[in-house]
């Protein structure tokens, strides 16, 4: 497995290394748009940069936009996967910081969906100069209930998920080779459909699920230099409203916007509303 920068120093400020320019191709990062300020869009568990395909283009006129795939997802370099590094969200935050450095981002905007919201918080606390705004879409610092804290899931339920991932490969093996028929509504997608969306290596998906759903990152909330916007769906079975409100309380000065959209992916199901909420903030 190739060496990965910062793999052994998750809690320190990153040091520039020769590998930094590689991070752009390793994470399959794509830059589009104009402007001196950069917006970085980060996807969550279960999908890839396609998560932002209806949202990111709306900002290209005003900002330089960056979308990317975490190692193990989409078009990333799967060979760069390091189980030890990515066992905590810190490992993913390493990559966000390295990518921001490689792209010379300072005072940019980080938009993170789902687990990426917490990855963005960690990156912002470790390298405050990178982002002046954080947009957290459907954030959850901990999915498992803990005393007074309501994460939305019992530990048994999460363990059931992990068992399900361990014992039932079907769901993932299907995602590796989805049988995708032509789509008469959107013929322009037909060419790139097969195997191109939300590709996930099954083994890495299991590990990412473990890292995502069993982590407790409540301590990574708190004051940050950046302005923080939280986008919360009215009904979200993955990140319930109570969790969004918890994040809002735990991040002083943050702004909470309740979206009319329901589900866990307003960036896909309600892109217009999501775009409007972000535009009003940035």
């Amino acid at each position: 497995m190739p060496a990965i920068p910062f793999a052994d120093m998750p809690d320190k400020s990153p040091v520039l290394s020769n590998n930094e320019s590689d991070i752009v191709s390793r994470l399959n990062a794509r830059l589009v748009g104009q402007g001196t300020k950069t917006m970085m869009f980060a996807h969550g568990f279960g999908c890839d940069q396609n998560m932002w395909r209806y949202v990111a283009p709306a900002f290209e006129a005003k900002f330089r936009t960056v979308v990317f795939d975490y190692v193990g997802a989409g078009g990333s370099d799967i060979a760069a996967y390091d189980a030890a590094k990515y066992a905590s969200l810190n490992g993913y935050a390493d990559d966000v910081i390295a990518l921001a450095h490689a792209l010379d981002i300072r005072g940019g905007i980080f938009v993170g969906h789902s687990v990426s919201a917490m990855i963005g918080m960690i990156a912002a606390r470790r390298a405050p100069e990178l982002f002046s705004e954080l947009v957290l879409v459907g954030p959850s610092p901990r999915y498992v209930d803990d005393g007074e804290y309501v994460g939305g899931f019992s530990e048994d339920q999460i363990l059931e998920l992990l068992d399900f991932l361990d014992s039932n490969h079907m769901g993932w093996s299907q995602t590796m080779a989805p049988v995708i028929m032509g789509n008469p509504d959107r013929p322009e997608l037909a060419e790139e459909l097969t195997n191109s969306f939300c590709r996930t290596d099954p083994d890495i998906a299991k590990r990412f699920a473990r890292t995502t759903f069993l982590s407790d990152n409540r301590d990574d909330l708190g004051a940050v230099d950046a302005r923080v916007l939280i986008l919360q769906c009215r009904y979200d079975s993955i990140a319930p409203v109570a969790v969004g409100e918890y994040v809002h309380r735990a991040v002083p000065g943050s702004k909470l916007v309740m979206l009319d959209a329901t589900g866990h992916c307003p960036n896909l199901s309600a892109p217009d509303e999501t775009i409007a909420a972000i535009k009003a903030f940035v």
Binding site: N50, L189, L268
Partner: peptide
């Protein structure tokens, strides 16, 4: 859906459906 299936569905299949416009042969 079972909790496991629900997390699967919300984080993976629902996004895929929104992006692709369809999915087939998903086991739940």
């Amino acid at each position: 859906l079972t909790v496991a299936g629900r997390i699967f569905y919300e984080t993976h299949f629902a996004p895929m459906l929104h992006i692709q416009g369809s999915f087939n042969e998903v086991a739940l």
